[in-house]
Design a protein around this nucleic acid. Sequence first.
DNA 1: TGTATATGTGCACACAAATGCACATAAAGC
DNA 2: GCTTTATGTGCATTTGTGTGCACATATACA
Lengths: 113, 113
Amino acid sequence: MAEAAIGVLDTRFLKALTDPARVQIVKKLILLGACDVSTIARGLSQDRSVISRHLNTLEQAGITASRKEGRQVFYDLDGPYIVNKVSLILEALQPMAELCLPFQDISETGDAA
Amino acid sequence: MAEAAIGVLDTRFLKALTDPARVQIVKKLILLGACDVSTIARGLSQDRSVISRHLNTLEQAGITASRKEGRQVFYDLDGPYIVNKVSLILEALQPMAELCLPFQDISETGDAA
DNA sequence: TGTATATGTGCACACAAATGCACATAAAGC
DNA sequence: GCTTTATGTGCATTTGTGTGCACATATACA
């Protein structure tokens, strides 16, 4: 079980969601839908080049997909992939809810008689 | 919905799970149950002081609980907290599975007639 | 009391990540 | 063709994080 629980923790995926700037980008994509880089960067405090790099990171993690259209590149969230990823994590960790009660042995069935 | 999806992304929690050394510690705790620091560090490649810091990080994130017993400190996984956290994330992100199809507009009901 | 063991902290260092500027590249419009 | 706009990359800088050693603190034991 340990292997299953640990193996599902995709570091690249989780890391991509730990940066405030990237989370802000994800939020913007939720609100606006598919957007080109400049539109995403508009209003955000960082340079467009930085946003571009963050978008690349998100794509490497599978969180976004991109499509080139003329001279601009549109990015959009891959909702199914994201939800599936989190679902797999939850599924793998689920047993811990019962088996990993802190400082409690699970030997006996906790029959509250 | 964006607020809900983003607000549930506990950075401290996610960050705690992005370090290989910490994940290794979590794995060890799954296998062994509650352990003192030295036992956890045994077999791992890093200094006990490093393990101690990682355990502190995990505890700050709510992933482990600790209990002092004599001169040693035992750490154990908080399974219910972990599973609940991931459940909340999944719950908040769930709508994205349908609403965030990459490069697809959701205006019409996709009736495949 | 003195000694040994367990844990955490101060400090310095190594390494990775984020950031911004300047620039290269690509595509659209004149 | 030249010019403008959109994007990504090279580079240097800064910031954050992980690491190990030495040491301080706390507890157990003789």
